[in-house]
Simulated scan of single mutants.
Amino acid sequence: MKKSKSPYYGFRFPASVISCAVRWYHRFNLSLLDIGELLLERGVSVTYESVRNWCDRFGAQFARCAKAVRGKAGSTWHLEEVFVKLRGESYVLWRAVDEHGTELDVLLQKRRDKAAAKRFFRRVLRSHPVPRKIVTDQLRSYPAAKADVPKLAGVKRVFVKASARVNNRAENSHQPTRRRERQMQGFRDPRRTQAFLSRFGPIRQHFALPRHQMKAACHRAELQARLLVWQSWADVSSVGIIQ
């Protein structure tokens, strides 16, 4: 049987360097130039364009792996939308998380109407089972779109409360994106923004453990285990890997 080529075949740098750069970019608030400088300190001379290319080529692959290993999504969806500026033009970023704070999906759209809400519902349903309950704010597009999606007909009810802090889990889930937006000095292209945020959430959450709920030793052990899992996705050994 013919052996398939490694996805890193033809690249100048080994998989350990490439996977490390992709992890740094999506896990920490670092620019492409920052990552180039950190790699240079470790004896690797690389341009920021190469780091950008690695993230574009391999980021989605790692995000899929991160989604595959996490637990089953919760039965409650928290949905929230937030406005973002792309080159001075307003867009709406839709986000869905479960009751554990795990990001289910994100979708960048131009509008905030019924059609946009329906499009987002169908996108999330493609990769997640039908929820038991949906929590939203007072946007009327949600119940109108839900009525037009047959899969959601059996959902018990939709909470529409803005003042009772029912939807704080979804609102708080926007904070990492806001921090990253400031560090990147704003998003620019809609397609690239959608691609980046689709990768950013799963990869960041794979390493962003609830350390306030864990003892230090437990946190370090779990983080080390997840780093080993990341290395297995990149098909590299721990010998000589850049950390």
Rank of each mutant, 00 (worst) to 15 (best):
A216L: 14
E222D: 01
G240E: 07
S237P: 10
Q243S: 12
H219W: 13
G240F: 11
I242L: 15
Q231W: 09
H219I: 03
Q224L: 04
D235N: 15
C218Q: 12
S237R: 14
W230F: 08
V239H: 10
D235L: 14
Q231L: 08
V239G: 06
A234I: 06
L228S: 11
W233M: 06
L227Q: 10
Q243D: 11
V239N: 09
S238E: 08
V239R: 12
A234F: 08
M214Q: 03
K215N: 12
Q243L: 15
V229P: 00
A234D: 04
I241R: 07
A221H: 03
A234E: 04
A217F: 10
A216T: 13
K215C: 09
Q231C: 09
V229I: 02
A217L: 13
R220M: 07
V239W: 09
R220Q: 10
V236H: 03
C218V: 13
M214L: 13
E222Y: 00
A221Y: 01
V236S: 03
A217W: 10
R226E: 01
R220L: 10
A216V: 13
Q243W: 12
S232V: 07
Q243E: 12
H219Y: 15
M214P: 00
A234T: 07
G240C: 11
I242D: 03
K215I: 08
A217S: 14
A221F: 01
D235M: 15
I241G: 01
S232G: 14
K215G: 15
S237C: 11
S237V: 09
K215A: 12
L223R: 08
V229T: 04
M214E: 01
L223E: 07
A216P: 02
S238H: 08
W230I: 06
L223A: 05
H219A: 15
E222L: 07
I242K: 08
W233F: 14
Q224D: 06
S238K: 05
R226W: 00
E222S: 02
R226P: 01
A216E: 11
M214C: 01
W233S: 05
L228D: 12
H219G: 05
A221S: 06
S232C: 13
I241Y: 06
S232T: 15
W233G: 05
D235W: 09
I242V: 15
A234K: 06
Q224H: 04
S237A: 14
E222N: 01
V239E: 13
A217V: 14
A234H: 05
G240Y: 08
R226L: 02
C218L: 10
V236M: 06
V229H: 02
I242F: 14
Q224W: 01
I242C: 13
S237K: 14
W230H: 04
R226Q: 02
L223K: 06
A216I: 11
C218A: 14
S238Y: 04
V236Y: 03
R226V: 00
K215M: 10
V236T: 10
L223Q: 08
